[in-house]
Design a binder for these strands. Structure first.
Lengths: 217, 217
DNA sequence: TGCATCCACGCTGTATACAACAATGAGACT
DNA sequence: AGTCTCATTGTTGTATACAGCGTGGATGCA
């Protein structure tokens, strides 16, 4: 049986499964900011022991998705407005640089694919949150993966993961601006104008910043 | 005895001790890039069990100081030239921004203290590596801690930790340039000229970049 | 009723035992 | 001699047991 299972598909380790399951739950808001992550309970749910579960939690802590205080359960990180704005400020600087570096390095085909996904968004009648995120990811990964700097890419990945923990409410109101700004980035990328790409990407981050301030303040 | 030990000083957890001990050893080059970190051996050396030791290793992995491949021991991260240059590129962008943000936020007293430490360096006759690093830290922390953006500060902390794993050889040749460039940053900070601070900090990062390329290539 | 104290429970932190896997070297066969 | 196989050994991955700490609620008292 174990042999069959192994042939079936490469079975990931217990801690890897736990890590995946928890990130999914956190991203999907099944687990919400401030929720307590009781080790024994979670381990039982996933059918593993506490040891690999703790390993997963520690990795998540390093990735900034959960926080811990000694002798108390881990909790899902609560990203407040200040955290969010500070992360956006870093993204404004770093993503602009990454996008400029990626100019001329990403294939036209990939750019066009992203544009197609983006334009298909507005046709969707019941506004689809999942599709919105997927397109957002496609655009941003275009230059994050394509910037040629693995260190930069890793940092941006984590930053985007944590900013996502914040920006849910009023997301529908971002549909229009996001699409406009993403298109501007893609157009500049197509044109191969690194400086325009930098400006467009920074403007996008600043737009998110302003939006959050307006909503909250 | 345990009671006395507890009263003596707040006893940190076993995993915290292991984390501290390992970071110290790695930074001091007692453990060098590529060295295998065998859990059982290390745990015995530190007088703890493997469980908290693994916790420390997992934290270190998140901080980028060690790397792991499944079913094999952790190894101290080997920072090659490409890693180093990519990290420097990120630092060029982010530290320049942090320094500009810190302008006007850091006290004149702190700036002057850093300047004093810096100037004292060249009086030291037997060139002192430790003193060099201490001064370097003092200057950079000035604006990293003072930039008012905790997210940015955390990223820069980790980046500096990993770049340190590389830049040892020929360090003595950096004494002159480092001092000049650090002084330029401090002067601009004193003058409260954010744009000059940004330029000086970016120039410093580029100087390190060029130095590494010249040495290696 | 309000408040302080204390006990009991649950959770985390650590140690230890065991299973699974990888690397290494000896030995046998060609 | 060379190579393939296989057992052995050491290491990681996981489970489990237990100790220590924190928390909340019950209880007693004013």
């Amino acid at each position: 049986m174990t042999i069959l299972a192994k042939l079936d598909r490469a079975e990931p380790s217990a801690s890897a499964r736990a890590h995946r399951a928890l990130t999914d739950k956190i991203m999907a808001r099944t687990l919400r900011g401030g929720d307590a992550l009781v080790e024994g309970r979670l381990a039982a749910e996933l059918g593993i022991s506490r040891t690999p579960l703790r390993e997963a939690l520690q990795r998540l802590e390093g990735e900034g998705l959960v926080v811990k205080t000694p002798h108390q359960p881990y909790t899902v990180r609560r990203v407040d407005l200040a955290d969010y704005l500070q992360s956006l400020r870093v993204r404004e600087v770093l993503e602009a640089e990454a996008a400029a570096l990626a100019t001329g390095r990403v294939s036209i085909a990939a750019i066009d694919a992203a544009r197609k996904t983006l334009l298909a968004l507005e046709k969707l009648d019941p506004y689809d949150v999942h599709a919105h995120w997927a397109s957002d990811d496609e655009v941003h990964r275009l230059f994050i993966d394509g910037c040629g700097n693995a260190v930069m890419a890793r940092i941006l990945y984590e930053l985007r993961a944590t900013t996502r923990l914040f920006e849910t409410a009023q997301l529908a109101d971002r549909l229009g601006p996001d699409q406009r700004e993403h298109l501007a980035i893609l157009d500049a990328l197509s044109a191969g104008n690194a400086d325009a790409v930098r400006r467009a990407t920074a403007a996008h981050a600043r737009s998110l910043f302003r939006f959050a301030v307006d909503q909250m303040g």
